[in-house]
């Protein structure tokens, strides 16, 4: 087991996010997403801390307070509430605040946020962030992100 660890945060209404294309690759629940992520992390030797919150302030707090304790962050902010635009600005600001830490961050959305009719906020636009972006791959987006962060960590060693 390596000593690296990964924080995975999913935001408000993960189940609603699953409803938007998240089941495209087979039905899946938030609990199953967590199990898939933990298994992928274990297979790659990464300790995964998987969290989900329906409270947007808690999401921001977790990012800002805890990212420094981990080797990477995977975030699915969801942000499909009616206040999504306001939330997105605050989310971007949070990512800006943690960008100087230079931790690898990958945003994951279950569905393709660019499809017509999507109510999900798109990718952050924070030039100084070390951020990747994945959408439209359902739960596989999470596992791809875990693989990519493990690759980044391995390459840096």
């Amino acid at each position: 087991m390596k000593n690296q660890s990964l924080l995975i945060i999913s935001g408000p209404g993960l189940a609603d996010c699953i409803d938007f294309e998240g089941n495209k690759y087979g039905e899946i629940s938030p609990g199953q997403i967590e199990q898939v992520c933990l298994a992928k992390g274990e297979a790659l030797g990464l300790a995964v801390d998987f969290r989900q919150t329906d409270d947007i302030e808690t999401l921001f707090k977790w990012i800002e307070r805890d990212i420094g304790k981990f080797d990477g962050l995977i975030i699915n902010p969801c942000l499909n509430s009616q206040a999504a635009l306001m939330d997105f600005e605050a989310y971007q600001t949070t990512i800006e605040r943690v960008a100087p830490l230079k931790k690898p961050v990958i945003e994951v959305y279950l569905g393709n946020v660019f499809l017509p009719g999507s109510r999900l906020a798109g990718p952050v636009k924070v030039p100084q962030a070390e951020a990747g972006f994945i959408c439209g791959l359902g739960v596989h987006g999470y596992t791809l992100a875990i693989q990519a962060i493990e690759g980044r960590i391995s390459d840096a060693q």
């Binding site: 393709n112 660019f114 017509p116 990747g132 972006f133 994945i134 439209g136 791959l137 791809l144 693989q147």
Partner: peptide
């Protein structure tokens, strides 16, 4: 992006392999 199933960006050249 609006014409595809999925998008992967910012994972470096390894993104192709992934």
């Amino acid at each position: 992006s609006p014409a595809v199933d999925s998008v992967v960006a910012g994972l470096g050249v390894k993104g192709y392999e992934y």
